[in-house]
Amino acid sequence: MWIPAIDLSNGQSVRLYKGDFDQKTLINADPLTQAQTIEAAGLTTLHLVDLDGAKAGNPENLQVIKSLVANTNLTIEVGGGIRTIERIQQYLQLGIRRVIIGSAAVTNPELVKDAVQKFGTDKIVVGVDGRNEMVATQGWLDTATVSMSDLIKQMIGFGARTFIVTDIDRDGTMQGPNVDLLVKLQNEFQTADIIASGGIRDIDDLKNLKDNGITSAVIGKALAAGGMTLEQLKAVS
C-alpha cells in the first residue's frame, strides 16, 4: 500500500528537510484542498503528521485534522504528539482509522501495550524514526539510547504489528529510501508490517522496495516536488 502524506504545521501543509523545523517548505496553505485532490485521484488512504504536536507533546492542528475527516472519505492515519490513551480514543472517535505512536513508544512503552489491548492491533501503529539505526524522539529533536531493532522487538512483544520506519537523514532529501535498513528490519521481524518512510523519489523507488519485500510506503516530498504524480501513484497502488 502506497500512502500519500501531509505534514501539518500552523494549519498548513509543509515539508521538512531531515526533520529540521528551520528548513520548512510550504506545500499547500489549505491542507483540505490537498487532501481532496488526493481523493479525486482515486487514492483512498492518507498519512497525516501533526509536526507541531510532535514537538509540543499535544495535538496542535486538531481543527485541520477534524476538517479532513469531515470533508473527505479518505482512510486517515495520524501521528504527532499522541502520548495518552485519552488522546488515542479522541482520534479514533473522530473517525481516524489508526493512530501512530512515536516518541511515547520510547518514553512510555506501556502506552503501546495498553493501547493495543484496548483498541486492537489494527488501530495502533508504532512510528520508528531514527538516525544511524538509533531512535529519535520529541519531533526528532532528541536521540534515544534504544536501537530501532530493539524498539520494534519490544513493541511486537506488546502486540504491535505495524511499524512506520523513517530514516531521518533521508526524509525530505529525495535521495532514495534506506532499503538496506528496511529489508534488514523486515527480515528480522517477519511477522511485522514494515512501512517505508523517508527519501522516496519516484515510482522506481517504490518498485525497488516492492522487489525487496517492502510493500508499503509513505510518500511526501516526491509528490510535492514532482518526482511522481498522484496518478502514477494510483497506477502502482
Rank of each mutant, 00 (worst) to 15 (best):
I85P: 05
G95F: 00
A235G: 10
K234S: 12
G57K: 01
R161W: 07
T107G: 04
T33Y: 14
G227I: 12
T107L: 09
A160V: 07
T44W: 07
M155L: 15
L94V: 02
Q89W: 01
A115F: 09
F189V: 02
D22H: 08
M155K: 15
G80D: 06
K24W: 03
V165I: 10
D202N: 13
G95P: 01
G227W: 09
I194F: 03
T75L: 13
T145C: 01
V135Y: 10
A54I: 02
D122G: 12
S13A: 15
Q138H: 14
N178E: 02
A217N: 10
I96N: 14
T191V: 09
L48S: 02
A41K: 11
A70N: 13
I3V: 15
V126R: 07
R83C: 05
I65M: 08
G172P: 07
G227F: 03
I85H: 02
S67N: 15
D205P: 02
T173Y: 05
I214R: 06
E39Y: 13
F163W: 09
M155T: 14
I152E: 04
Q23W: 00
T45P: 00
R87G: 00
R98W: 09
G11V: 07
D20K: 13
Q89N: 15
V116S: 10
L223T: 14
A104T: 08
K123F: 04
L94R: 05
N187T: 07
Q90I: 01
I124S: 15
K184I: 00
V116K: 09
K113Q: 13
M228Y: 04
M148F: 02
D50N: 10
N73L: 02
L8P: 12
Q90W: 00
M155P: 07
A5K: 05
S149K: 07
L181V: 05
I164A: 07
D169I: 05
L233A: 03
A40W: 04
G79N: 06
L92Q: 12
G102K: 04
Q154G: 02
Q117D: 13
L51Q: 05
V69F: 06
Y17R: 12
Q138S: 14
I85T: 12
G11W: 09
A144L: 01
L233E: 06
P31A: 09
V106S: 07
L206G: 12
A105V: 10
Q12K: 15
N108F: 02
I88T: 03
E188A: 12
G53C: 06
T166W: 05
P4N: 07
A40D: 11
L223G: 11
L43T: 08
L8K: 14
Q12G: 06
R15T: 10
A196W: 07
N61Y: 04
S103P: 03
I195C: 07
A224N: 15
F119I: 04
G81C: 09
W140R: 06
G79W: 08
A41C: 10
K123W: 09
T229K: 04
I100C: 00
D52S: 14
I156W: 09
T191K: 14
K55V: 12
G19F: 01
A235S: 15
R97T: 11
G102A: 02
L223I: 14
L151A: 04
N28M: 10
N61K: 09
P31E: 07
